[in-house]
Amino acid sequence: MSNAKKYILTSVTLGAIASSSALLIGLANLITKDQIKKNEAAQTRAGLAQIYGSNATYGDAVAINDKNYSHLICYYPASIDNDPVGNVFKASGKNEYGDITLLVGVSTNNEAGQIYLITNTQSYASTLVNNYVGPYNNGRVEFDDVSCGATHGAELVRDLVLEAVNWSIAQGGGN
């Protein structure tokens, strides 16, 4: 077999395999995307209830399209008995250990509140929850105390929360 023919055959084979793979993945995406969106919406609802308690009510999501706050996706205005208590921010980010999407409450006086992880694909996922997010939510560790055995994940969470707080401050308050 001549070299040119060999090269063509090799690239055609690899191209055909890659194209078939892309087609299969596209098909899987078509089948699963609606269900994944439904799951995410259900998780967001469950998360919102945990941020300010079940007696809080939340407005519709308001998208954040600010390039300076690229990790912030949207926020939900929260109120209890029609009194605004702050906003719940949805933020997403990634590092070399995986992705994190979270909800965080920021009060009307720009203080970070409860954190709820919607997705956590960090390789030290349970360590991050058990040693940082959980203790922080229970008031047992300080927000800046990221040395928890999953430091990179904790730093990512901290940065996402800080971005929400900073956005809130830049807007001149929680509402």
Binding site: S20, S21, L24, I25, A28, N29, I31, T32, Q35, I36, N39
Partner: peptide
């Protein structure tokens, strides 16, 4: 390819 498909199906 199969890992990606399995991942999507598990997520859903």
């Amino acid at each position: 390819t199969f890992v990606t498909i399995v991942k999507m199906l598990t997520n859903a």
